[in-house]
Design a protein around this nucleic acid. Structure first.
Lengths: 154, 154
DNA sequence: TATTGTTATACTCTATAACTATA
DNA sequence: TATAGTTATAGAGTATAACAATA
């Protein structure tokens, strides 16, 4: 096949992916903002399924540790988590999500991933085909959680 | 088909798209930064294929007009574009990309879109299949240029 | 009066550096 | 001495409001 046609097709593929991603992004932003969270706050909360120290959370999210303080302050003030001083090392704060926090996490997860409609135009067979192709395209690559894609976004 | 299995598969599809997008994002950021541009500067420059006024540029990029001043200042200082006062309305500055600016635009476009390797794991037949499926999934949706997806990113 | 662009200002997100309490 | 967390501060990106020049 002609090289130009090949590269033109690949360009088209990238553009198609970007359109789908753009749609997902708008959907995800709407969900986060409906939960009255910012992106950094949502990213932090969604990481806390299992308790972490502030330092561990910073490392997971690739934030400097100095930023975690105010993010955790806000989430704690909202009653979504609690700081507990680690009895075995009194420097460490373990972050424990409250019952209310767990509800917020569960709702956000469900809405963002399950109510995404990026492939609503496809029937069941086509979705299966698409999934097979994308699985092959992705190979061994992995990503962090969806919300962490959005770091630094408005 | 069981509803849970259906929704689990859709979740998987979203995750696959996000992994591919994440790879593209890293590639695009590397290209922008190799061109010694920030995302807002790249977004502005890439919009100026055909000359616009500052106001028109702000509207295209969905920026408040007050931000355009410093972005255009920087690009002009770099010699990538020129402000020309519109002779028919002396309030308006038309933004004209220089020859050097056109070179930067062309290189950036080519590198970002043509050197993207999001589907390098697929053979020719699979790419064609994928393109057909994505075209159907996208339907009538469109997006702005790729770089505008990245507004507000680091 | 309305519009283009500029300036001043403020807010969010993020990083660096200096500090404290604890180890 | 080294580490967890906090505070102060700075810089980038973006928005709002007031202003000057022009229409």
């Amino acid at each position: 096949m002609n090289v130009d046609v090949q590269s033109e097709r690949d360009t088209k593929l990238v553009e198609l992916l970007l359109i789908l991603f753009d749609q997902f992004r708008e959907h995800a932003f709407a969900c986060i903002s409906a939960a009255d969270l910012s992106i950094p706050h949502a990213a932090a909360l969604l990481r806390l399924d299992s308790p972490l120290s502030q330092r561990e959370l910073a490392d997971c999210l690739k934030y400097d540790a100095s930023n975690i303080t105010s993010i955790v302050d806000t989430l704690a003030r909202r009653g979504l988590l609690e700081r507990q001083i680690d009895p075995t090392d009194r420097r460490v704060r373990r972050l424990i999500v409250t019952a209310e926090g767990r509800t917020v996490i569960a709702q956000l997860r469900q809405r963002v991933l399950e109510e995404a409609t990026v492939v609503s135009e496809l029937d069941e067979h086509e979705r299966a085909q698409l999934q097979a192709l994308l699985t092959k395209a992705v190979g061994r690559r992995t990503t962090s959680t969806w919300v962490e894609l959005f770091r630094g976004w408005p």
